[in-house]
Write a protein that binds this DNA or RNA. Sequence first.
DNA 1: GTCTATAGGCAGATAGAC
DNA 2: GTCTATCTGCCTATAGAC
Lengths: 197, 197
Amino acid sequence: MRPAKAVETGVPDVTTAQRILDVAEVLAQTRGFNGFSYADIASQLGMTKASLHYHFPSKGELGRALVARYHENFAAALATIDRAVKVPAEKLRRYAGLYDSVMRKDRMCLCGMLAAEYSTLPEAMRTALIAFFNANESWLAAVLEHGREGGAFSFRGSPKARAQSLLGALEGALLVARAYGDDRRFRATAKQLLDDL
Amino acid sequence: MRPAKAVETGVPDVTTAQRILDVAEVLAQTRGFNGFSYADIASQLGMTKASLHYHFPSKGELGRALVARYHENFAAALATIDRAVKVPAEKLRRYAGLYDSVMRKDRMCLCGMLAAEYSTLPEAMRTALIAFFNANESWLAAVLEHGREGGAFSFRGSPKARAQSLLGALEGALLVARAYGDDRRFRATAKQLLDDL
DNA sequence: GTCTATAGGCAGATAGAC
DNA sequence: GTCTATCTGCCTATAGAC
């Protein structure tokens, strides 16, 4: 039986693989997937490149794991919103808040960043990336449809089409605001997008 | 006096520097600035890497020239729109058409791509990038203000704020649509953005 | 202006000791 | 699991012949 560890502190096990992903995620969100190397991760963790390859044999594998975990965490955040809030407009406000918290950390959405690099990504990462966007769109479309039925929104067109443009608009707002280094700019655009519904 | 060349064909001089920029532009728009090398350009032009360095001593220099030329061409396109069209809504339709023509070539807007890579860019490129966005926003803000005064638009908020969110939304729509490889998706979003004004 | 040749460094990745 | 050592290849960039 596996021994319980760090029970006193209440701090759960953090595996090396997780710590690698943590560092890689920040690097990928700030510099892009092609903008960092195993050496960057290794130096930040005080270990060697060879050790990283034990956990993630190739960079493509690392990237795939990165997107998968990001997707899981995002899905969990959406589930939390669904549990905590029932009002569609407030759901969307919180959804935009997820992007805002990324902006405040001076990062880009991981998947927005990877979308820019799409043509250079291995197939497994491409597939995972599209899955992330699809999940976001489905969630958004459901909220939008529900909100319009309830009279909270009055947008034209299908909920699906709206979901697509909203997703793109938030990613783009983040992309440009980050270049300006201005998070108020992102919030102003996000508010406007939601007010337009 | 410099001898006239290619007068018979009516084809103007295309300098080597221009041809280098042409190839580099496509590469930067599809793979990102960190996603291509001098070797890629050289092989496409049938010349050596060393020759490229004669025209552009460093990759940063090449990138700066890339953004500067892109900005010039974009400004010229906006001037053409201003000359050909007076109706604000139609001006914006043509503006979105500029992005659409990029999408149809399976490329990303050069500056949207560079915005993703912002933190890895040399200072000169960052400055040129922001200048591009500023010019776009100024043009958009003027058209939006004019259109609202004329009763064509009824958006809320300042024209400047609208210009910022419109620019971001178009860049983001392009970014995501490109990952899906679906240009109809881009056009649907663009239409929606303009209809919302 | 374009070439050959090469420098010097960093990339992702592997072998094998501990 | 982590290390040292190393491989192979590509990167940006330069020197100097033509």
